[in-house]
Nucleic acid binder design. Structure first.
Lengths: 207, 207
DNA sequence: CATTGTGAACGGGTTCACAGCA
DNA sequence: TGCTGTGAACCCGTTCACAATG
């Protein structure tokens, strides 16, 4: 099967599949069908079959998909059989919550270091980490060969921090700051802003 | 102009426009063009013009769009000229961070109450709130006539909590629990799971 | 017999290109 | 002249429908 060029929209659905499949597995379910999976996720059975068939023939006619097998395949496709180290920038309330979150481990990630600019925070502990001075960030991240960063600093600081991260060799950034980042091509950026999602819903709530 | 049926995909982009426009305004920028806005957000100028033209003629040929005017229009469309009260369920680390977050106010939202099931937390303060017993949640939310909830409980509890929220009259749910919620039609659900976005990016990071 | 994998048909979102206007 | 608003063209993602198969 030729690995062609997979549309990004399909890649974006794979983590969702993985999430649900893992959840099913923890419920003791070993097998599923495109129909069943589709209902759980809220998309059509045809779409699931088409998506998965981009990467190989993972199912069996008449019986469906083996969940452990499928989980394995998707983990491999998404490169999360390994554990990725993440640098977390910003040790405010949100940074604290992320640093202490226990859900990264079995999904392919690990917070490896935490930085902040506030002298009162530097040196303090947060979860199992010691907050490091952002002044040393570029060098520290580069020598640890970390490729992924999460940003929880203020909107004002985000762009500056992001530029330093690129300098440090970071390739993927997940930012919680509600501002668009302008970075060189080749850097992947994802945004999390709960208010954007709330406003999407209030449109339908009428007035 | 007929309000027809606006495609959901367009509605979903409006909050992003609003976010960026507000940011520009705070930078003192008063005017923009579809070109300029597009570059900042990372989508085409044509798309921005098409999107905005769904709701009226907001621009002026030759000069572009007035940002204060556009912000006003989009806020009205998204129903965020008013302030929506939100019930927050789950007073863990993430719940704390959200309860104390100062960024909701000027974007149309306000955390109004916080619930948890843990007897050790109930009665304690978190930001300006007192954590309430989840046992009283349905009645409290209903009598306060709250329509929006944010869930930061564990994956195991999320479905049960969500069902009680529906019972309480909640119409929109933003959940941080990494499990799909199965709820009656008419309830809007949005998911936030940073790991899904991280896994989307690791696909492109190769191995 | 249930369910996959997939070419073909479909539909809708995006881009194009340009008339219209400040 | 510069930039919007918009019909038409295009393209791409989704759905359909069915042959293939354990």
């Amino acid at each position: 099967m030729v690995y062609a060029q997979i549309p990004d929209i399909i890649v974006g659905r794979l983590p969702r599949y993985l999430q649900v499949l893992t959840w099913m597995l923890s419920d003791g379910i070993q097998t599923t069908s495109s129909q069943d999976l589709g209902e759980r996720i809220g998309i059509s059975a045809a779409q699931i079959r088409k998506d998965l068939s981009q990467f190989g023939e993972f199912g069996k006619q008449g019986t469906g998909y083996s969940i452990p097998f499928l989980v394995n395949q998707i983990q491999a496709i998404l490169n999360v059989k390994q554990v990725w180290n993440i640098a977390l920038i910003g040790a405010g309330d949100l940074g604290h919550a992320i640093a202490r979150y226990q859900g990264f481990a079995n999904r392919g990630f690990r917070i490896a270091m935490v930085f902040d600019i506030d002298q009162n925070k530097i040196g303090r502990e947060i979860g199992e980490f010691i907050i490091q001075d952002i002044a040393a960030m570029v060098e520290t991240i580069r020598s640890a060969d970390i490729k992924i960063a999460m940003i929880t600093v203020t909107a004002q600081s985000a762009q500056g921090v992001a530029e330093k991260l690129v300098e440090a060799g970071i390739k993927s950034i997940l930012t919680y700051a509600p501002v668009p980042l302008k970075l060189p091509p080749g850097i992947f950026i994802q945004y999390i802003d709960p208010i954007i999602q709330l406003q999407h819903m209030t449109y339908y709530l009428g007035n």
